[in-house]
Design a protein around this nucleic acid. Sequence first.
DNA 1: TATGTTTATTATGTCATACATAAAAACGAA
DNA 2: TTCGTTTTTATGTATGACATAATAAACATA
Lengths: 235, 235
Amino acid sequence: MNEAVFKESLSELDTSSLVDKVEAKLVELLQQRKLHVGDAIPKEIELASLLGVSRTVIREALLRLRVMGLIESKKKKGAVITSPDVFGILSKSMNPHILNQDTLREMFEIRLVLEIGMADFIFQRITPEDVVKLKEIVSQEPPATEQHLFNIEHEILFHGKLYEITGNATLKKFQGMLLPIFDYVHNSGLLKKQLQPKRYVSHKGLVDIIENGSPEMFRNAMRNHLENHFARLFD
Amino acid sequence: MNEAVFKESLSELDTSSLVDKVEAKLVELLQQRKLHVGDAIPKEIELASLLGVSRTVIREALLRLRVMGLIESKKKKGAVITSPDVFGILSKSMNPHILNQDTLREMFEIRLVLEIGMADFIFQRITPEDVVKLKEIVSQEPPATEQHLFNIEHEILFHGKLYEITGNATLKKFQGMLLPIFDYVHNSGLLKKQLQPKRYVSHKGLVDIIENGSPEMFRNAMRNHLENHFARLFD
DNA sequence: TATGTTTATTATGTCATACATAAAAACGAA
DNA sequence: TTCGTTTTTATGTATGACATAATAAACATA
């Protein structure tokens, strides 16, 4: 039974599916820098005959790469390598209604971690223009009412600017991804209600520290600023 | 020309491809909580006839969901809803050889942000057993040599434990994803060489602070502990 | 020559069908 | 009942065909 033997020895290497192998092969090519951003990869049919599998398999492998953001395929031009937008990919599955509650809370927590931890990058890379912009944002802060302790849009504007100042585009994208989560968790009944919501260090206070203080001071101030959120997690 | 009119009015709704629509439809179902984790979704053929498209389209849509981590499909059991492992999805495309250098550096920076910012969660959730474990890890720290300022495995062990202590599984997964990046950036010529590498606050020092100090102290100590990395970024 | 329009080409997108494969379920014998 | 075998079933793979959209080529017109 030559055929049987052949199949057996083949399946030894072959725990994974055909598509897995093709995908791995293509990723391998990317990793070896044989292909660069903007390069076009062979047509589906060429790849199929090249790798000895059906076009179906090729298409599925390419699709995976596409979902992962490694390639983009245009109608006639074929597929081209793209530099993956690491977090852009995530935004699709980063839907509050899909994630489970534990994950949602954890994402909420990660936002707090980031804003406290990014102090050094703010101080290292802030420009005079940034300071001006921050002050402008603070000056336009709407007054807090009884119902709404703070205005969501304004919160996003201020804190988003801080992320921007870090000069870390990936971090900024990450924040953009966390925004809907944060909003959802904040408004849903997922966390305990805060007993007596209070404002601690204000946005203006944070800006003052950025101007005259140190990363250490900023971390502590930001921790204080976020106290309401921490309280809802810890109390 | 009834047919032409029909096609035209159809294409008004139809800027996206068939697969796009099916994908959106399925995601919508997930979001509406019509489907829950563990639920099985209809078979491919059923979906095909249900939505009036070919099995090919259904398969591609399902594949997208699978790559996004929203479903898992078993051989006979069909596909079942899974709570997406948010960062697990990323790990594939999170390959140092694929990402561009700016992104790599930014991921490197995010790790620093996280470890400084997570102090409060460590202090809030640490257990006596964690302290014992930390001390055990520190006690087994290999001595620093001339060539290697620190042992990578041991670094991962210690810092990984810290992530674990935060009780934030998502954060821990995130770290796992950052590890290869960090290693790569650290060893490649991407960053400046540090002129005179020095050890500042040691692992033991961090543990002491965890036992007797405060989150504020820990943040500053961790910032100091990571000084070598910061120096390579900022100097 | 330059420019706008039509036609042909090409590679991906979609469909249909058939078969392979693996896992579950049904079945049967001890 | 329990173990091993067969059947069923849904996904995985292969193949061939046509649709569609973007490009390129050809053409016509000023």
